[in-house]
């Protein structure tokens, strides 16, 4: 047995991981998730603003991380829609422009379409190359950075941008971020210089840890990894349920993904434990036989 485990083909581990994730997708494990304080503070920031406040919403991710980030982006977009906030949508990642447009079609216009007319209640600024340089210019001069919106209309002719000369006019920044450029750059180039605008973020597990130092002064709230998204879905569905009074079907994605998360985390812990046991037993055996590496 020990010899088998010591020389185990890693494809067996791959198979275990595949099954640990696949089985709970086919046979879901429904659990409720208690919202954490950080998820609650993201909700409160969006919710306490008066209806129709100006919210800058940045889709700073690509398909590689959309499994983690798309559920939280959609839940926050839905929440902004229910609050009738004026939305200024952009992206620091090229594919974020496309993913943001999809989310607007599938969530915002589907569930809050009556309150949203393009150009009057929301605008898509799209993507520009330059990473943090984009933030740096737009915090002082928006039309210099984005000469037109994604539909080719100059910003001066878009009603929702009347009185908005730069990002400083925003009440809240919502950044859904996969890495660099993302939440960190928003804090460095915008929020730290102009703290009047509050910021909340949704990030990947990988990035979330490095954003804790900014909480709470520079970052008012954060949804970290799929768990943060699941918690947010719970809060939003409780306060703003779908038209039939039930949770919005699109806003159950993260909660669904917590099922595979449970089994896969258990597998990870077991793998580390078994790996260590095998290692210790192997070492003891080596000692007994006098080898002692």
């Amino acid at each position: 047995m020990l010899a088998f485990l010591e020389k185990l083909d890693r494809r067996w581990v791959f198979l275990l991981m595949g099954l640990a994730v696949a089985i709970p997708i086919l046979f879901p494990l429904p659990f409720e998730y208690k919202p954490s304080a950080l998820a609650r503070s993201v909700f409160d920031e969006i919710d306490r603003l008066p209806d129709g406040s100006r919210v800058l919403f940045s889709f700073d991710y690509d398909p590689a991380t959309s499994g983690e980030l798309s559920p939280m982006a959609r839940a926050m977009l839905y929440h902004c829609g229910k609050k009738k906030h004026k939305l200024y949508v952009m992206a620091l990642f090229g594919p974020g422009k496309t993913l943001g447009s999809e989310a607007i079609q599938e969530i915002l216009l589907k569930y809050a379409g009556d309150d949203y007319t393009y150009g009057e209640d929301y605008v898509e600024l799209g993507y520009q190359t330059g990473n943090e340089g984009v933030i740096k210019v737009a915090v002082t001069d928006l039309p210099q950075m984005f000469p037109t919106d994604v539909r080719g209309t100059p910003l001066s002719k878009i009603p929702v941008l009347e009185g908005v000369e730069n990002f400083q006019a925003m009440d809240l920044l919502v950044a859904v971020s996969a890495g660099d450029p993302g939440s960190k750059q928003w804090i460095q180039y915008f929020i730290s210089a102009y703290p009047k605008t509050r910021m909340v973020t949704g990030t990947t597990g990988v990035q979330s840890v490095s954003l804790y130092p900014y909480i709470p002064n520079q970052l008012a709230g954060m949804l970290g990894a799929i768990k943060g998204a699941a918690e947010y879905e719970t809060i939003v569905n409780a306060k703003y349920p779908g038209p039939d009074g039930k949770p919005v079907p699109e806003l159950t994605e993260a909660q669904r993904r917590m099922g595979p998360q449970l089994t896969a985390h258990l597998l990870m812990v077991s793998l580390i434990v078994v790996g260590n046991v095998v290692y210790l037993m192997g070492r003891r055996k080596a000692h007994q036989s006098g080898g002692g590496r």
């Binding site: 185990l8 890693r10 581990v13 791959f14 275990l16 991981m17 595949g18 994730v21 690509d62 398909p63 590689a64 991380t65 959309s66 499994g67 896969a264 597998l267 990870m268 793998l271 580390i272 078994v274 790996g275």
Partner: peptide, 18 residues
């Protein structure tokens, strides 16, 4: 691109064991 990143779940499991 998304499957490329999903592959890492398998490798992190293998690394955890070894």
């Amino acid at each position: 691109t998304s499957t490329m990143f999903a592959l890492l779940a398998f490798y992190v499991a293998s690394a955890a064991f070894r």
